[in-house]
Every structure is written in C-alpha cells, then in structure tokens.
Design a protein around this nucleic acid. Structure first.
Lengths: 177, 177
DNA sequence: TAGAAAAGAGCACGACCGGTCGCTAAATTC
DNA sequence: GAATTTAGCGACCGGTCGTGCTCTTTTCTA
C-alpha cells in the first residue's frame, strides 16, 4: 500500500480528473482530506460488514456473517491495496494527532459493538473479559488472513481463518459459565 | 510508522551524521538501501527471536520462548515505530519487485521453520496441515497483539495474546492424532 | 613514505511536493 | 434578470526529493 502520505495531490487530481487547485475547493488542506478519507473508509466498513448482519438476531449466526463479510471486505472490496483499515492503523498508530484520534474513536466504537455481540453468543452471556478475549482472537484472525494471503501468497488463507474462527466460536459457546 | 518511502535521504543523513552524498558511497541507490534494510531487519529478527530458542529442544517450551520473544521484539525492540516486519509486509505486499521478493523469501523461510517447530510439538508429530493451521493462529495473535496495543491502546494486549497462544498450544497438544 | 583507494563534503540538477493566486464560467439566490 | 456564490483552471511559489559531479580528506597498502 502507498498510505495516505504516499498519495500526492497530483496523483489524486489525475485519478479524479481534476486539477490540483480544483481539489482545494473541496478540502482546505491535505490533512483535511485525510480526515475525510478516514471517515469515508470507516463508513464504508460499517456498510459492508455490519449492515448485512444487522437484520439477524444477536448470536452465533450473526457473528459468522460479520466474520465472513470482514474477510470479504479485505479480499474483494480492496483487492489491490489491501484492507485500508489495517493500512491506516499501521500508518497512524504512532502518529499522534487528530487523524489518529479519529481512527481510534471509530475503531473503539466498532470494538465495543463486537464485544457486545460476543457477550450475546451464549446464554448466560459471556463475561466482559471473555467477550474481549474472543474479539481479540477474531480480529487477530482477520489480520492473519490478510497477511497470509497478501504477503505470503497463501491461497488457503480464507480457509485457515474460517477454521480458526469456527473453532473459536465452538469453544466459546462450550465454555462453562 | 513512516515506512521505507517515508524516510528521505536527508532524514537518514541527519540521523547517521553524514551528508546526503556521503551516503551514496555506501549504497548505489535508495532501492539498494531498502534491500539492505530488509536484510538487516530480518537478520535482527532471527537473532532476537530464534537465537534464544535455539538451545532448547523442539517442543512446547521452545515455542513458548519464541512467542514470548516475538512479542518482546515488537514491544520492546521497536517501542516507537512498531514491528518493522509488519510494517514492511503492509507496505510491500502490493509492490511487486525485488524488494518484495526478498522479504517474501525471508518470511517463507521463517514460516517453514515455525511449521517444523509445530510439527514437533506432539508425539506423534502434527500433520503438515495441522502445523500450518497452528502457525497461522500464532502469527495472527502476534499481529493482533501489535494492533491491540498500538492502535487500540490496550495495555492488556500481551496478556490476551499469551492466553490465546497458551490455549492454542493446549488444544493442539491434546488433539487426537 | 608515496601513492592508491575509499569515505565524505559541497553543490547543482530536474522533478515533484503541498499550497496560493487570480481568473473564468456555471450555478444558485435574491 | 442581476448579483453572488461555487467549481474549476493554469501559473506559480518556496521547498524537498533522489541523484550525479567534483573536490578534499582520511585510510590502507606496497
């Protein structure tokens, strides 16, 4: 990936068919643009991943749909660049400022949502700690999937990730209350 | 992180106390430098993570040491920038060329080593597929650990990763042959 | 110790960087 | 229909980019 810093105004101008100066009628600065990019990416993330699951009732099936959509998002929605959420995280995690803060806020919101989903996986509900541990693993498998597929060229990455996630759901459901 | 592209020759020159042109007596081009960076990073990776485990016999304890060193590597060896292997992977996974090829080769070598380690975790040894699945999860937890700690600000990330890894070892040892 | 070779400094280059300016033309509002 | 806002353009700014060239200084070797 090229990252936010790796895309110049000239690149962008050519891509959208505008002049550099034309772009500045829509954004005050490059950082202003970057903020809009983060917002747009996270909005799209929610639409692609959360929306299809919204209709379902909380529980295992919903989590399975979310996980499937999450892999799909990275694999099909961004076949060239790779998942922009991961890219933004790696690029911004040591760059303090409003941009990182915005991404952090959106990701925390998502995390909170997902922990809630995991709590509802079992009756009686999982403890907060159990749900957090489960989400940690879920997100790990998403990251592992991208790494395996993109960097290691592993065509079975999706299968590996799915198997790991299914096993995670199995043992999380089964765990004693 | 700033990435290879994000570090200019002027930055580097200042950091090492040389002039820009002075640097060119050691490297033919910036790409030549990048190759050396990838080599150096992977050499250091092996030294920090593999070397302390080398003395041990293959098996669970060795894997535990490797995992501990791997987390340590990301957390203590690179407290500011984050794990450079992850950074390089994300930066280069869609940039075909000798640089990506070099990183790919070194990472494949590491993967092969680790899969071998996992096979030796049990007697009778794990199948190739089982060992690959286990390594997929191990690497996922490493990635999850960095993401949780650096982007999400989770101080318990190490604990979460360790718990997940121990559980992985448990059920991998226990699995029927 | 003379001379070669290596390490480094200084400078200049063309290309590109993010950003501003003044202008035009289209759209919107009054 | 006049006035004002908006979208967009090309030219241009000061700076930085990677890199080549020449010259000096250090270091190694015969």
């Amino acid at each position: 990936m090229r990252g936010l810093t790796g895309v110049s105004l000239a690149d962008l101008a050519e891509a959208v068919g505008l002049s550099k100066s034309g772009i500045f009628k829509h954004f005050d600065s490059k950082e202003d643009m970057h903020m809009a990019v983060v917002e747009a990416v996270m909005d799209r993330f929610a639409e692609v991943i959360w929306k299809p699951a919204e209709a379902l009732t909380p529980g295992r099936e919903r989590l399975e749909v979310i996980f499937e959509r999450w892999l799909h998002w990275a694999e099909e929605e961004w076949p060239d660049s790779g998942c922009p959420v991961t890219a933004l995280s790696v690029e911004l995690d040591d760059q303090p400022g409003p941009l990182r803060d915005l991404l952090h806020k959106r990701l925390q919101g998502w995390r909170k949502t997902m922990v809630r989903e995991f709590r509802a996986l079992r009756d009686p509900p999982l403890s907060e700690a159990e749900a957090q541990a489960a989400y940690f693993q879920m997100k790990s498998f998403v990251l592992g999937h991208s790494d395996s597929r993109r960097m290691m060229g592993d065509d079975d990455a999706k299968r590996s990730a799915n198997a790991a996630f299914e096993a995670l759901l199995d043992r999380t459901c089964r765990a004693a209350a």
